[in-house]
Design a binder for these strands. Structure first.
Lengths: 231, 231
DNA sequence: CTACAGTATCTGGTACGCCATAATACGATT
DNA sequence: AATCGTATTATGGCGTACCAGATACTGTAG
């Protein structure tokens, strides 16, 4: 084989996604962005019709979402969209704080121009998205910021955990970022993380990451209790 | 209805476990305790025969284990028992350290006789199990120790995460606890956690928990590299 | 208006069948 | 004999049909 043609060059890319994975993504997205509301029943045969797939696939998808914590299963009644109570949300924020703080500290300890550059790119993305009032993009870029934080120090498992937990509080996240002062304070707090990493200040990065999550948690708590008293 | 007969008294207790859950437990256990080895293919129809359930159930179980990280799915080849590489194991220990440290700190901050008593009970269980050379009991009691740590401060979500990650390194755990000095050092390190909690020393409890996990990680690393060079 | 029986709905579970793909074995052609 | 193409097999992916048991609903009889 010609040396000029690397294997990767001609490799045919196949979607390779199974129907199950497609359906999983669809349903997860539908839950996350509120098409299915918490407490809604997820009737298997209805989902079959809506997704255009068989019950076999739907059931596997529901199992998967169940183990992700997005779907709860009532015995003899069937699956519903999981309710998120305020205490659980706080716990999730707390865990995120611990893990993101850990990742930030690691980034600072092995601080490098690449890490800083990658983080600043995400941060710029967030600022631009706020400027354009594109909240979906804010969320996506925020995720990307944290993903960078974890993957730059090869903490894929921790990132997986954070990601898993984050989908469960996604609708909270979309509410917190819309809060008035969040568009200023959020990026400012993240900039503090990056600064500490640039300085190689592990403890500072840890604290800054914790502070950022704590702020998000506080807003979420306010939003949730306001929503509850409104009901 | 007679007041003397409380509803709960006559309630017929049903397993309430679905076949799926039973099968899930069986397969998970089979993987965890080594009946299926890492890399083994898990052929659906074979599992049906071995478990005595239908393919639907088996498939749902495999999906579930996949999202737990115990099973990996090779495209166009099917599910295999996930391989655990050393780096991933280290990451899992690191996360456990962060979360168990967090829980220990919380326990210390709201230190109470109940918490201390519950932890000491588990600790005694561990010491007795070591004395009796019952390694399965050591594992169970160690889990119970940590479960207490988390549930005493109502951190069920974090406990769930730790539990999820722990099954993936279970065979490592069973190797580390068999190590010579672990029977002395392990309980000693855990006693330090309890002491710090008794004193209400949050930082000390955090450090002690981190140290304990770090020690386990070091042993696991040694075991793994020894095993690798033996191959 | 209430109690009860019947009915519809839905999940849990099973069985079976079809198709696509990958690997392997086998046979034919050069 | 080496290689190429084809048949077979193993297996996963997916769909459908069916049944049992629990629950929710509904209409009717008393």
């Amino acid at each position: 084989m010609s040396g000029a043609l690397k294997d990767a060059t001609i490799r045919v890319e196949r979607p390779a996604k199974t129907l199950r994975e497609l359906a999983l993504d669809k349903v997860r997205e539908a839950i996350v962005n509120g098409y299915f509301r918490p407490g809604d029943r997820l009737v298997e045969r209805d989902l079959c019709a809506q997704l255009g797939v068989s019950r076999t696939v739907v059931r596997e998808v529901l199992r998967h979402l169940e183990s992700e914590g997005l779907v709860a299963n009532l015995p003899n009644k069937g699956p519903i969209v999981a309710q998120l109570d305020i205490d659980e949300a706080k716990q999730i924020y707390e865990i995120r704080g611990a893990l993101e703080g850990m990742a930030a500290r690691l980034c600072a300890e092995r601080s490098s121009p690449e890490i800083v550059a990658a983080l600043e790119e995400s941060l710029t993305g967030i600022r631009n998205s706020y400027r354009d009032n594109d909240m979906a993009a804010v969320l996506a870029n925020t995720s990307s910021f944290y993903q960078t934080l974890f993957t730059m120090v090869d903490r894929h498992v921790a990132w997986g955990v954070v990601n898993l937990l984050t989908v469960r509080i996604n609708h909270l996240r979309s509410m917190t970022i819309k809060t008035e002062r969040r568009s200023i304070e959020g990026p400012a707090q993240m900039a503090k993380i990056v600064d500490a990493i640039r300085r190689g200040d592990g403890e500072g990065a840890y604290q800054a990451a914790m502070d950022h999550v704590a702020a998000a948690c506080a807003i979420a708590e306010a939003v949730l209790s306001a929503k509850k008293s409104a009901e």
